[in-house]
Design a protein around this nucleic acid. Structure first.
Lengths: 203, 203
DNA sequence: CATCGTAAAACGAATGTTCTTGCGCGTGGG
DNA sequence: CCCACGCGCAAGAACATTCGTTTTACGATG
């Protein structure tokens, strides 16, 4: 017989995860101690350990959430009746990502990608979500090809992987080198894609 | 009066840095303990601390070195009489990077980029080198434009930043998702750039 | 009354760093 | 030329913290 409502339990989980998010974004996974999370959550050690078995569970949950944010943004664009022009797609995605948080997009992402290399549990929890991202971008490529604004000879899956890589590097540069780098990349992408191979000109 | 030759001292530094490189590549910066480095170097704690003030000095030195590797590869290409065709440039760079180490290129890079966000000393040590990389790529863009294989309207600096982002994401995906991802990106880049805006068709 | 949460203490393990010790070689007095 | 001295180098035990986690006892609450 539960003594508190299920919503209360879920709210506590969120409270803890939100606190962990703040701490991880501020100091990184490794330089964040569990007492840091306790303090940020305003909870005691016992309370946190009642909801999560340990620090690694917090990390994997946060890592998976951070990647899923991008999937949801892509889904929102896919649900819309039509996509922005190709040269505006990535800039819009970056703007949406920035709107989620602070001044730079996805501040958790670089350390997630770094951690994937050495922590199989994080890799397992995140790899599927990265595949989802690629799949959404491939679908967008197909739509562009159907609309005649992208060369039909391009493989959507391969092209999507290139876009994933570009997004990853974009996020890294925005987070490490600041807004100026972001604006340069925006200009560069617009310049490249407004001259990009389209069905109409290369079909 | 030094009791050992200067070459001996420099050899010891290299010995320690090489050991740190192996440890950091294997377990990451944070999951590598100083005793790990001692063991890998075959030296004692006192010996290592005689040559480096602490762990952070090792990290920054390794981080800077790892980024400079890419600069040197780019310089090698710039010294050559002519560049490969644009669609082969990035694949060749990735091959050169892979030749330096194991099965994936620049295994240190993702954690360096992640660490830049939170450690100002690493950011300071690496930002300049990243700027060097961008500058080399911009020079390559200018050469391509002069050769008429890249649209002259593109800003070399902005385009170079896009290439940096693409390389960063490429390295991440190769390291985290394996060789299959690399091959997909290679195919995607070739597909995009063989249809890329060139002076001859858009001039 | 069972449960949830708190506060605090304690846990062993592991961390980065320092300290003390002694080995070994270059050097200066014989 | 030889030998013992002395110093730089390295070793590795020992340092104080800090870590993640568990446990304790106690109060609040449904």
């Amino acid at each position: 017989m539960p003594k508190v409502s299920e919503e209360h339990r879920e709210a506590r989980r969120r409270q803890i995860l939100d606190a962990a998010w703040v701490c991880f974004a501020r100091n990184g996974f490794h330089k964040t101690s569990m007492p840091d999370v306790f303090a940020e959550a305003g909870l005691s050690a016992g309370a946190v350990y009642r909801y999560f078995p340990g620090k690694e569970a917090l990390i994997t949950a946060i890592a998976e959430t951070s990647m899923r944010q991008l999937v949801e943004i892509l889904d929102a664009h896919l649900r819309a009746p039509d996509l922005p022009p190709p040269e505006e797609l990535l800039p819009e995605l970056m703007e949406d990502l920035t709107a989620l948080g602070g001044s730079a997009p996805a501040p958790m992402a670089p350390q997630v990608w770094s951690e994937m290399m050495r922590d199989p549990r994080i890799a397992g929890a995140v790899a599927g979500t990265l595949g989802d991202i690629q799949q959404r971008l491939a679908e967008m490529c197909r739509r562009y090809q159907a609309a005649g604004v992208l060369a039909p000879g391009l493989d959507p899956g391969d092209t999507a992987r290139v876009l994933v890589a570009l997004i990853q590097g974009w996020i890294i540069q925005w987070n490490t080198m600041g807004l100026a780098a972001h604006q340069q990349i925006t200009a560069g992408v617009r310049g490249l894609l407004t001259r990009a191979p389209r069905s109409a000109t290369h079909g």
